[in-house]
């Protein structure tokens, strides 16, 4: 629906332990709490940090989201993912 809704999801997933647990357990149900369209939901589920930044989401949030939720929690993997998208 908006950059703001995406930022709200990612902020919650950065700072709220219960949100991270719910996202890890059942991402579609967790994300159903937010006003996201199908594209946005898929970007969050898929850790598409480049796509999220392309929608205007703060890089502070995409980085925090990755480091707190992506299973590998690796900065190098995060940058590989970002740079792969950049081509």
């Amino acid at each position: 629906m908006s950059t703001h809704a995406l930022e709200l999801v990612l902020h919650d997933l950065g700072v709220k332990r219960e949100a991270r647990a719910a996202f890890a357990a059942d991402a579609p149900t967790f994300l159903g709490r937010y006003r996201l369209d199908a594209d946005e939901l898929e970007m969050v589920r898929g850790f598409d940090v480049a796509g999220l930044q392309g929608r205007g989401v703060s890089a502070l949030l995409t980085y925090g989201f990755w480091m707190m939720n992506e299973p590998g929690k690796s900065r190098a993997d995060y940058l590989r993912r970002l740079n792969a998208a950049a081509g």
Partner: peptide, 9 residues
């Protein structure tokens, strides 16, 4: 703040 203490709200 690094978008942690203060959020979108």
């Amino acid at each position: 703040d690094h978008y942690v203490l203060f959020g979108p709200t």
